[in-house]
Write a protein that binds this DNA or RNA. Structure first.
Length: 346
DNA sequence: AAGATTTGACCATC
DNA sequence: GATGGTCAAATCTT
C-alpha cells in the first residue's frame, strides 16, 4: 500500500499517501480496541469510511462540481424524505422485480477505494452490511462486477445497493457505485449510556499516538494543482449531512463539546458512516473540508478514549488527557490548508 | 437450520 | 440483439 497512484496530479498524491496511512492506522486501532466501548469502534469505522471516500474521490477525480456527469443530470435533487420507501412491514409486495437498468438514477454515488488489506478481494468495509446477490461479466472490463444489496432489505426494507468492480488499471482498486439510501437502522450505537473512558487501553493509546503524529495532512499541493482541475474552490462530492451548509470556518474542527455525552450523542447523527446515504445529500467540500472532517473525528476519538478538556484558541488547540498525555493541533495560520497534529506523552 | 454466496436465467433498456 | 441488473435455485458456510 505504498504505491500511490498518480491519478490526477502530483499534488493529490501527498494527500492520498497521508490518508492511506491514516486508514491503515485506524484499521489497526479498530482491531486493538476490540475490548473497548462500541463508541470507539464506531468512531474508528467512521474515520476509516471517510478516509476511504476521500481517497476514492481524490484518485478517481469524481467531483460533483465542475464537470457535469456524463451519466446524467439526475445526480442532485435530493429526494431525502421522498425516499422510495418500500413501506415498512408490507409483506405482500416483497421487492418488486425491478430489473430496469439504472443509468441515470438519482442517488447514484461512485467512488474508488483501495482493497481492504492490500490484495484483498473486496474493498474495505464501508460500515454497512451488504449481501451479494449477483455477479456479472462486464463487456470490456477485465474483472466481473459484483452486486450487493443491504442485508436489511428484507427485514427493514432498506433499498440501498452497491456495485463493486475491480479497476482494470490497478487490481488493488475498486470502483464502487452506491445506489439508494440506507433506511435501515443497525449498529446505530444507540446504546446510549455505554460511554466509558477507554483511556486505560494502552494499545489504543499507542495507536492513537501513532495516528495523531502521522496526521499532518497538507493540501497545498491540491490547491496548487489548478492545472489538473483542482483549485481551492474546486469542490468535490463528499457525504456528510451534518456539515452541509457550514463554511469551513463554522465547522471548527475542534469545536465539539468535550463531554462524553455530547460526543456520543453527536456522533451517530453528525457523522453518518454510510456512503450510500450521501446519494441524496451531496455536498461540496474542499480539501479543507476533508481535513476538518477527519480532525473532528480524531477529536471525538480522543474524547472517547481519554481526553476530557480542550484549550481552544484561534489556530492551536490542545487536548489534555488524564495521564499527562496531550494532543496538540496547530492550524498554521499562514496556510489554512495545513494542520499539524502531534501528541505528547509524559 | 439459517443465512450467505454462486450462477444461470430472465427481463428491461439501449 | 447485446448488455446490464436482478431473481432465484443450488450450493456453501457458519
Amino acid at each position: 500500500m505504498e504505491a500511490v497512484h498518480e491519478g490526477n496530479g502530483g499534488g493529490s498524491g501527498l494527500v492520498v499517501t497521508e490518508l492511506s496511512h491514516i486508514k491503515e492506522l485506524v484499521k489497526q486501532l479498530d482491531v486493538h480496541l476490540g475490548g473497548s466501548p462500541d463508541l470507539c469502534k464506531l468512531l474508528a469505522q467512521q474515520i476509516f469510511a471517510v478516509t476511504e471516500r476521500s481517497i476514492g474521490m481524490i484518485k478517481s477525480g469524481h467531483f460533483n462540481g465542475p464537470k457535469r456527469s456524463a451519466a446524467g443530470a439526475g445526480l442532485d435533487s435530493p429526494p431525502l424524505s421522498a425516499t422510495p420507501s418500500p413501506v415498512s412491514g408490507v409483506s405482500n409486495t416483497p421487492f418488486k422485480p425491478n430489473k430496469k437498468r439504472k443509468t441515470s438514477e438519482k442517488g447514484r454515488h461512485q467512488i474508488r477505494v483501495s482493497s481492504a488489506a492490500g490484495g484483498a478481494d473486496a474493498p474495505a468495509d464501508d460500515g454497512h452490511s451488504w449481501r451479494k446477490y449477483g455477479q456479472k461479466d462486464i463487456l470490456g472490463a477485465q474483472h466481473p462486477r459484483a452486486y450487493y444489496r443491504c442485508t436489511y432489505q428484507k427485514t427493514q426494507g432498506c433499498a440501498a445497493t452497491k456495485q463493486v468492480q475491480r479497476a482494470d488499471e490497478d487490481p488493488a482498486l475498486f470502483d464502487v457505485i452506491y445506489h439508494g439510501e440506507h433506511t435501515c437502522v443497525h449498529k446505530t450505537a444507540a446504546a446510549a449510556g455505554m460511554v466509558q473512558p477507554a483511556g486505560q487501553n494502552p494499545d489504543a493509546q499507542s495507536l492513537l499516538q501513532s495516528l495523531s503524529s502521522s496526521l499532518t495532512v497538507k493540501t497545498e499541493g491540491l490547491t496548487a494543482a489548478g492545472t489538473q482541475g483542482w483549485s481551492t474552490t474546486t469542490p468535490f462530492s463528499f457525504s456528510s449531512p451534518a456539515v452541509s451548509g457550514m463554511t469551513p470556518a463554522e465547522h471548527h474542527p475542534f469545536s465539539t463539546p468535550s463531554t462524553p455525552e455530547n460526543c456520543f450523542v453527536s456522533m451517530p447523527t453528525s457523522l453518518e458512516p454510510s456512503p450510500a446515504t450521501s446519494g441524496s445529500n451531496h455536498m461540496c467540500m474542499t480539501p479543507f473540508h476533508v481535513h476538518s472532517e477527519l480532525q473532528t473525528m480524531v477529536s471525538a476519538l480522543v474524547e472517547a478514549t481519554s481526553m476530557p478538556a480542550a484549550d481552544t484558541e484561534e489556530a492551536a488547540f490542545s487536548y489534555w488527557g488524564f495521564d499527562d498525555s496531550a494532543l496538540h493541533v496547530n492550524n498554521l495560520d499562514e496556510d489554512v490548508n495545513n494542520f499539524d497534529i502531534s501528541t505528547f506523552f509524559a
